[in-house]
């Protein structure tokens, strides 16, 4: 009986969604602000990647909120798992030679790739969140492959705090110079070069370090 009722409810929701989607004209732009970003984004922000110019320039304050949400999630996980610290067994099984060598070979390359993604965030697809996630997956590989060389939790905490601090300080400097939070006070430079787009590369480096340290800290908390 309950299954039949839930199926009927599901059918009603399905019909509603179909009608709602049917009335949206796909492929036609209805929002004016998107066109403004596409045509004036490079001129106004100096970032070639329009997604980056929206994320860090037009909607920079929202990015601070997103990073804060991630921080609160990592903090909550740490609080939940705090009391249950099992003593790590001494006779932890060593990884096989292939895994150990592969991990030692790949770990710096993955870190380099993540750093490349977030340093070039204003030129190519990607940015601080993606680069940070790639760096965290590199740390995951190192935890699985070479458990002897664990990096302590305090370093993650310090890196994460420094990233957040740099973001907020850049925003406050923009507030004093440009008149609003996160205003782009550095020269924009020539578009399509590495040193362009004002404060966007600095902000993305801060976000990349912060997200990478947070996600690696989450993995550390789970494995420990």
């Amino acid at each position: 009986m309950r299954k039949i009722i839930s199926l009927i409810l599901l059918g009603i929701v399905c019909v509603g969604i179909i009608f709602a989607l049917y009335s949206i004209p796909f492929g036609k732009d209805k929002i004016k602000v998107g066109k403004h970003y596409i045509y004036n984004g490079i001129k106004e922000t100096g970032a070639v990647n329009i997604v980056t110019s929206v994320v860090l320039n037009y909607r920079g304050f929202d990015t601070l909120g997103e990073v804060t949400i991630l921080f609160i999630a990592a903090l909550g996980l740490g609080v939940v798992l705090y009391g249950k610290k099992k003593k790590r067994k001494e006779g932890l099984e060593p990884a096989s030679l292939v895994l150990y060598t592969g991990c030692r070979f790949l770990f710096p390359l993955i870190l380099l790739f993540g750093a490349y993604i977030f340093i070039h965030g204003h030129l190519t697809p990607g940015g601080g969140f993606q680069g940070g996630a790639i760096i965290a997956s590199g740390f995951l590989l190192s935890y699985l492959g070479c458990p002897r060389k664990w990096i302590s939790k305090e370093r993650f905490n310090i890196t994460e705090s420094l990233g957040g601090l740099v973001f907020v300080i850049m925003g406050l400097i923009g507030l004093t110079i440009g008149g609003y939070f996160l205003s782009n006070f550095l020269p924009k430079g020539i578009a399509n070069t590495l040193f362009s787009a004002g404060i966007i590369p600095i902000l993305y480096c801060a976000v990349g370090f912060k997200v990478g340290a947070e996600l690696a800290g989450i993995i550390y908390n789970m494995i420990e």
């Binding site: 997604v51 993604i117 697809p125 990607g126 940015g127 993606q130 996630a133 997956s137 995951l140 996600l215």
Partner: peptide, 23 residues
């Protein structure tokens, strides 16, 4: 949407799977 694709591949396919497996 290559930006979203990168985020989905690195977080959704790699990190979430690892965290679920550990859990």
């Amino acid at each position: 949407a290559p930006d979203v694709a990168m985020a989905e591949a690195s977080i959704g396919a790699a990190l979430t799977t690892a965290i679920f497996i550990i859990a």
